[in-house]
Design a protein around this nucleic acid. Sequence first.
DNA 1: TTGTACGCGTTATCAC
DNA 2: GTGATAACGCGTACAA
Lengths: 343, 343
Amino acid sequence: METITIKDIAKLCGVGVSTVSRAMNNHPDINEETKQKIMEVIKDYHYVPNNSARNLKRADAKAIAVLIKGITNPFFSKMIKIFEQEIQEKKYTFVLQHVDDHQDEVDVAIRLEKEKRLNGIVFLGGHFSHSREKLEQIPVPFVLSTIGLRDQSGSEKYSSVYVDDVKESAKMVSYLIEQGHRKIAIIASGEDDESIGRLRLEGYRRALEEHGIEYDESYVARMKDDVDSYSMENGYAVTKELLESGKDFTAIFAISDSIAIGCCKAIFDAGKSVPENYSVAGFDGLEMAAYYHPSVTTIKQPVEEMAEATIKMLFDVILNGAREQQRVFDGELIEGKSVKRIV
Amino acid sequence: METITIKDIAKLCGVGVSTVSRAMNNHPDINEETKQKIMEVIKDYHYVPNNSARNLKRADAKAIAVLIKGITNPFFSKMIKIFEQEIQEKKYTFVLQHVDDHQDEVDVAIRLEKEKRLNGIVFLGGHFSHSREKLEQIPVPFVLSTIGLRDQSGSEKYSSVYVDDVKESAKMVSYLIEQGHRKIAIIASGEDDESIGRLRLEGYRRALEEHGIEYDESYVARMKDDVDSYSMENGYAVTKELLESGKDFTAIFAISDSIAIGCCKAIFDAGKSVPENYSVAGFDGLEMAAYYHPSVTTIKQPVEEMAEATIKMLFDVILNGAREQQRVFDGELIEGKSVKRIV
DNA sequence: TTGTACGCGTTATCAC
DNA sequence: GTGATAACGCGTACAA
């Protein structure tokens, strides 16, 4: 399979390379007849232009990349679909780039921009605690989407779209309290977590405080290090331990729906019931939460609107040179059947 | 942000470009001292080599691409992780490429190979009914992984890894029959489906036949066209209609776990229970099936082994010039609590 | 309207 | 050990 290049096509057609190039790229100044002929030869010989060479030459690829950290996260699936849709609607190419757990998303972004001549970037997931200096190395506009911002200060430097994890988390815990719960356990992330996990724990703490309930460390169960974080498996393992510890509580707030589901399962497997014996609440608003039996009470993040807003903001900067901005969305508390009102 | 190139670095260091190139690519013939210095300048100036230019020049990028059709599918998540792991272990670069629903995966593969100088390709998902001629245009070894092969004939032309959907599906339906069920509804794919959906329906049919039960069209419920296929939502909608139709049946075989879960939910919402009123069985062995309440009886595809076999086969062809081969894996019937034995 | 020649940033092949 | 220089495949001024 010797690689066939634009030169070969030109020779085959008895024309110059520039004519072939013009034919492929829909340039105006070309004879319709020769163009037809060229296109035919291209088809016949299955010629495919080399993208690397193109990117090397082109100033602007009209492409937007979405960098996603943690492809396993079902929460992102819907967002990606909308990103794709919106980007293609604007006649831009959609590039989806997966980032390993141990890779630095900004490094990947910089490399990719060089390689593909991107016009903009969306970061999805990750904690994103990068220095301003590093961020400034990204030569194109970008938006942080649903990323747990540890530090709001200095955030005017970049655009972002997110829900206020502290507030929403507090909303859920307040709801549990209003349903009569006082002894509320939480399944939180590890001690050293700097991402959304910490923020959601902070919300839990704040809600308790507001309602005059003392914060008690022993109600805080941490996810296992040796199991996928935010997974059902992790939720199951932690809950199992919690139940076996004999600790007394009436409700569990899991900081994600996946955890909540693992949590429910552990309760069922222990011969207990949700919500009769224990109430369970989640976070995220995954489809799964609604389909679970019982359906899981959760905070639904408005993924559609958030994804749309992300793209809109990005293009605002790209096309209109708008300033960076932050948009905070409200989560919606969806009452399922997993929380019982107690007296 | 003027782009900084290898030339700039060379000038800055007072050396030639080739020396810089050698420093970056760990070439042996280079003075350790100058190398150190060059690397430092690279760091300081945040120089990042342009991948397009690299790919243009390099003969071989030592890269394997995984093309995935339908990123939403949770079934693929685990496989991808293993692919990544195995590929990196072989010191190859892992490239994950998403393929739109309306894109042709082979076209994407050909383009990507040209662009990135791939050494091999894994196709994940899709139905893959391509002509031999088209397949021959792929200039590097490739493996079809968990792809519903419509037509086993002529498949010696390419490597593949899959479970026998017909057989496994029949296994599940036979199991239901052995549990005493006779009136078994199935939630199948659309009439025009040529992918795994058709195969699984075929298995259903075959199992009935083997047990002397007449195949009855009216027990075949088709997924909705206007809803995501293989989704919980689809399973819910179809089951709801089925229940409202008043059709008499004791078990439902959903051709995927997601559908099965939507199915369960519809039954619960109708005030009925699983498995007391209706037994439900799924297919795939998703994590979710195990965590559902009741846990869903399903056919578990051995994803880990399949993913490992995929990579092994691919490298066998790449490194040892082995012939194409097909490997069929057995699914495992996992008994959950969603199927009741009846008399 | 079409063809020629150069440059994009990098690596590999030479000489030195 | 190091430095010119020729590719790699394509797009595009510029000339024709």
